[in-house]
C-alpha cells in the first residue's frame, strides 16, 4: 500500500507519502507567516514530484490519494482538491477526503480536555470544530462551524469545560479568547497547520476499511456561500 496525502486548506502547502509501516516523507511549504501571497498553484505539483523522487517511489505505485478538503482558503482548497481528484482519476485509484479540521485535532488526542480545531476564514471569522478524546483518537462533538471569534467564545462559555485551541484561526485571534481566562489554552505554532502525519494515519485507516470515494465525487468543504449566493438568498427569492 502506498498513499499520497495533500493538504492546502491554509497558507501551508503539505505533501506526504506513507505506506502501511508509516510515513515515507513529507514536504511543507509556506506557513503562518503571511509575508507573501500563498502560491499553492505553483508549489503543489513540483512538491509532489520532488517528494516522490526523494522517497524513491513512482506515482503509478499509489493505492489512493488522500486530501484535506478544508474548510479553509478557497483557492488553496481548489488547487489541492483538483490535484488530488485528477491525479487519482488518471491513476485509476480512489480518493480519501478528510476534513482539515480533523487533521488539526488528531495530534492532540492525548490532551485531557476539549480540543478545538480552528482555521482562519478571513473577514474576521474562523472555521472550527470541537473534539473529545476517545480510545485511539478523537471524536467530533460539534458541527463544522464558521463564525466570529466571539461566536466561538460564546460556544465555549456555554460548554463550560477546559479547552485546548489549535490551528491558525486561534493564533490570529489570541486576544479574543482572553475573557475565557485559564480555562482555555492555545496550542501554539507547532499546531498551526493541519497535520500531515495525521493525514497519513487517518488515510491509512480509511483505506483499510475501504472507506473512500470516486474522484469525481470529491469536493472542497466551503461552509461559506459565495457573496453572490448570499446576496441572492437575502433577496428572498
Amino acid at each position: 500500500m502506498l498513499l499520497l496525502g495533500l493538504d492546502t486548506a491554509t497558507r501551508r502547502v503539505g505533501v506526504v507519502l506513507a505506506n502501511e509501516q508509516g510515513m515515507l516523507g513529507r514536504v511543507e511549504l509556506g506557513g503562518t507567516a503571511d509575508t507573501a501571497p500563498p502560491r499553492h498553484a505553483e508549489t503543489l505539483a513540483p512538491a509532489i514530484a520532488w517528494c516522490c523522487e526523494r522517497c524513491g517511489v513512482e506515482l503509478t505505485q499509489l493505492s489512493a490519494v488522500a486530501v484535506g478538503i478544508g474548510p479553509g482558503m478557497f483557492t488553496g482548497l481548489r488547487v489541492g482538491v483538483t490535484t488530488a481528484k485528477v491525479l487519482a482519476q488518471s491513476l485509476r485509484v480512489p480518493v480519501i477526503p478528510i476534513p482539515s479540521l480533523d487533521l488539526l485535532a488528531y495530534p492532540l488526542r492525548y490532551a485531557r480536555r476539549l480540543v478545538v480545531a480552528t482555521i482562519d476564514a478571513r473577514r474576521n471569522e474562523l472555521y472550527w470544530a470541537i473534539y473529545l478524546q476517545v480510545p485511539g483518537g478523537v471524536q467530533r462533538v460539534s458541527e463544522y462551524e464558521i463564525g466570529t471569534p466571539d461566536d466561538l467564545v460564546a460556544e465555549l462559555e456555554a460548554r463550560g469545560e477546559d479547552a485546548l485551541l489549535c490551528g491558525d484561526g486561534s493564533l490570529r485571534f489570541t486576544d479574543a479568547f482572553e475573557p475565557l481566562g485559564g480555562r482555555v489554552e492555545l496550542a501554539g505554532p507547532a499546531h498551526a497547520s493541519p497535520s500531515l502525519s495525521a493525514l497519513a494515519e487517518l488515510a491509512r485507516a480509511r483505506y483499510e476499511r475501504e472507506d473512500f470515494c470516486a474522484p469525481s465525487e470529491v469536493l472542497p468543504m466551503y461552509l461559506r456561500q459565495s457573496d453572490a449566493e448570499i446576496a441572492w438568498n437575502r433577496k428572498g427569492m
Partner: peptide, 19 residues
Amino acid sequence: LAGALLVGVSAAKAISLAS
C-alpha cells in the same frame, strides 16, 4: 478568472505528473 484558471491548470499538472 484567477480561481477558475487554477482548476484547469491544477488538473493539467496532475495529469502531467500521473502520466
